[in-house]
Write a protein that binds this DNA or RNA. Sequence first.
DNA 1: GTGTTGCAGTAAATCGGTTTACTTATCGTT
DNA 2: AACGATAAGTAAACCGATTTACTGCAACAC
Lengths: 339, 339
Amino acid sequence: MNITEIAKKAGVSKATVSNVINGKLSKVSDETRERVEKIIKEEGYKPNVMARSLVKKESRLIGVVVPYLGKDEDFFANPYNAHIIASLEKFIRANDYYLMLRCVGDPREIVPLLSSWNVDGAFFLGIYKDEVPQIKSQIDIPIVFLDTYAPGEEIVNIGIEDYRGGYLSARYLISKGHSKLALVTPDISSEGVIKERYRGFYDACREAGIPFKKGNIYNTESTYPSAVQVGQDIAFGGGDYTAIACMSDIVAFGVIEGLKQCGIRVPYDISVIGFDNLPDCELMTPKLTSVAQDFEWKAKKASDYLFKMIEGKCHLVADERQHIRVVERQSVRALSDRT
Amino acid sequence: MNITEIAKKAGVSKATVSNVINGKLSKVSDETRERVEKIIKEEGYKPNVMARSLVKKESRLIGVVVPYLGKDEDFFANPYNAHIIASLEKFIRANDYYLMLRCVGDPREIVPLLSSWNVDGAFFLGIYKDEVPQIKSQIDIPIVFLDTYAPGEEIVNIGIEDYRGGYLSARYLISKGHSKLALVTPDISSEGVIKERYRGFYDACREAGIPFKKGNIYNTESTYPSAVQVGQDIAFGGGDYTAIACMSDIVAFGVIEGLKQCGIRVPYDISVIGFDNLPDCELMTPKLTSVAQDFEWKAKKASDYLFKMIEGKCHLVADERQHIRVVERQSVRALSDRT
DNA sequence: GTGTTGCAGTAAATCGGTTTACTTATCGTT
DNA sequence: AACGATAAGTAAACCGATTTACTGCAACAC
């Protein structure tokens, strides 16, 4: 069933049917409109999106691009992604758009595809600064980046106060009497949320007069299995830590598991703080103390910007960062009057 | 940049460019092909997907339809969905298709949209039997249902042995000496995985000569907050249970939390078994004993069927159900010689 | 020398919509 | 009565690809 058949059945031209569908009231009399609408309903006719997009040059399609990590190559390797995607989906749907989801190794490779799909806009999750220019230059639809650091680039980015998050993480541990700190984190060398968190963490240590050396950094992927390994390494490594800061919750989960497997108890033997505040923090015992970010807030902000740009046919520049805090639970113990 | 411009630059017709793109070797000489390919690469040209779909009547788009539950209206309300989606995305990508994700209240409402998008195929997650006929009748692209019970309908369904899962759940508890059982479950009246699991559970109890009454059923949504509430209800309800079977992990997580909040310890005071074997089972303390299903298997099977149907332009009928087992962890205690 | 076959390539139709430019009829003004 | 404005509707062009039917031309068989 297509527009031509509807037009024939209603005894009008395609143009008139199109005008009815698109609510161009001034072009159609009430009488004809009703007749056409009746037939459309009877036939259960829905206009072909492809044909419409072709001429309108808009698709009501929003791309969501998620870089994958590790070898699993799915977005759930870090559940954080899943939360964000779930929230974004909700807002995309609420705005009557459609979500095209794609995980990628290198986000740059997806850009030509996005434009060949005529997507009206896109969200990019966790892109690195040096990937931004290529993305921007290859496509000029509205894009909202989440958790990207690219000062100087004219983009819309929604994130959190990562520096402050790292800072709070360290401050919190220190306030509980810890001074022998380990840090478990993905690569801190690229510009990005992790580097910022690390900087905050480092500065807080310095301010408190606590020596924090590169040797206290344990490298991991943002995946559970990788972090379990690190937990074991720490357990066996003989480093004399009283607390471990993790740069994401999924890493903290893994580290705790790794420690447990080696007979080390959290928080009695060693304290652990996470970052993200995934709902799973509540599930475990001890419940994970974590630096909290609000996914819903992020997704809402990001969507607001994206749809403002799409509907206003304009480009905005913004860098909004959510104010965050530590959610205190049970995985960090106060070192009171013991050493 | 479109095909006409490429054709002009290369001094050939659109048809030739099209033939180059689509690898119709017999229609183009090597010389021309190379020239055209060079220009395509130089210009970074990608054919417009919409235009191609319009004439080819295929879009390389796969719909993934996820019913939402509760009032959150996002797929993460039950993390189980997120796992399946993540796996499906991986296989869809591997087959060079694109994933259109949509959560819905009523799955039937999405069908006209799918067809207006010319999607080449679709996955429906957790649809009820009585929704199937309408879905099938409104659209005739290949569809694979996951976790649907619709005997007699000519569909492809991929699921697990739910009856056996419920049966194993009860058997396991009983084998550990439990006889005072509660069941926490979403509505068991609709045909579907839950009803099957319930039937298995019920039969296992009967076989073992253990009375299981409707009064031992606690109703919940498949969401964490709802299950927490139920956990509290059970704690306060004074029912003298030694073990609780939950029909999904997310529910078990919530129940355990609810119990904990009321000072009841798992598994010392009461045992809990889940269903799904989400990775989160490993995170918590006690680690959750659960009836295991393998998401990756499901997504792989489902994709194999879908792409076989799409590429073979045929309809298949199948009902494959994964053989499942109980993964024993720590949330169920053996009631040895204590009443 | 004629007929057949295969190769390389093209013009035009097509997919299912939207949009533009144009027509006709009706009405109100002056 | 002539003029313009507005309302209602249409034919045809267009979006960017694919596909069909056709054209020359060279090679080959008989």
